[in-house]
């Protein structure tokens, strides 16, 4: 994963609650076992008719939102299934940040693992941003400064836990990180647990 600093561009407005990961990435495409090239299936059943033609007027079929670097959405975006394909597909589409009042929790974690910045802001702020996004105003998400700037307005701060932010900024892989920093602690934990709960080691 490459490091992340800022992203700027149009934001697709999705003023709807509970946009679940089945909408973001329909289950039938889960039969694919690759993680690359999934962007074309993102929001498939919203973007395309059964015959494969585009649904006219859908935000992702409208310029300049066809490959938006940012999505602004209603509460509970990414709820439902744990499928990481939802994030891989968004990333494949070009999305690097999702702004919402709340995200599905597993989706939220999956975003952090894949260089998509989860930006959680109060509902009133998101409501306002939805309006600006629909009007085509440019958004800048700055991870270093932890701010969202909507063109012409003062920046809005957001927060990412410090270690997660550091990993995102540097593009570090979490598995490498855990093994490099905590291998001894994990072994120590196991040695104790083997004594106290031997049935887990039978």
């Amino acid at each position: 994963m490459t490091g992340f600093t800022t992203v700027t561009g149009p934001a697709a407005a999705m003023p709807e609650e509970n946009i679940d990961t089945d909408i973001i990435f329909p289950a039938r495409f889960l039969l694919l076992t690759a993680r690359e090239g999934l962007g074309k299936h993102a929001f498939h059943d919203r973007r395309y008719h059964a015959d494969g033609t585009e649904v006219a007027g859908y935000v992702l079929n409208t310029d300049p939102f066809r490959a938006p670097p940012v999505i602004v959405a209603g509460a509970n975006f990414g709820s439902g299934s744990s499928r990481e394909q939802a994030v891989w597909a968004l990333h494949g589409l070009g999305v690097r940040a999702v702004i919402a009042p709340a995200l599905g929790e597993i989706f939220h974690n999956n975003c952090l693992r894949n260089g998509v910045i989860p930006v959680i802001l109060p509902p009133e702020t998101v409501a306002q941003m939805l309006g600006c996004a629909a009007a085509g105003t440019a958004f800048t998400v700055d991870l270093e400064a932890q701010t969202v700037t909507v063109a012409g307005q003062p920046p809005t701060p957001f927060a990412i836990p410090p270690e997660r932010r550091l990993a995102l900024l540097n593009g570090w892989d979490e598995t490498d990180l855990v093994l490099a920093r905590f291998a001894d602690d994990i072994t120590a934990f196991e040695n104790t647990q083997r004594q106290t709960q031997p049935w887990l080691y039978a």
């Binding site: 993680r35 744990s82 499928r83 990481e84 994030v87 597993i106 974690n109 999956n110 693992r113 894949n114 836990p161 270690e163 979490e174 598995t175 855990v178 093994l179 905590f182 291998a183 994990i186 934990f189 196991e190």
Partner: peptide, 21 residues
Amino acid sequence: AFGIGASEQTTVMAAQALRQT
């Protein structure tokens, strides 16, 4: 008990541990 994504599964496989909030 909780659901996780594929990248988190890799961490569990390799390290038997996972960062959680």
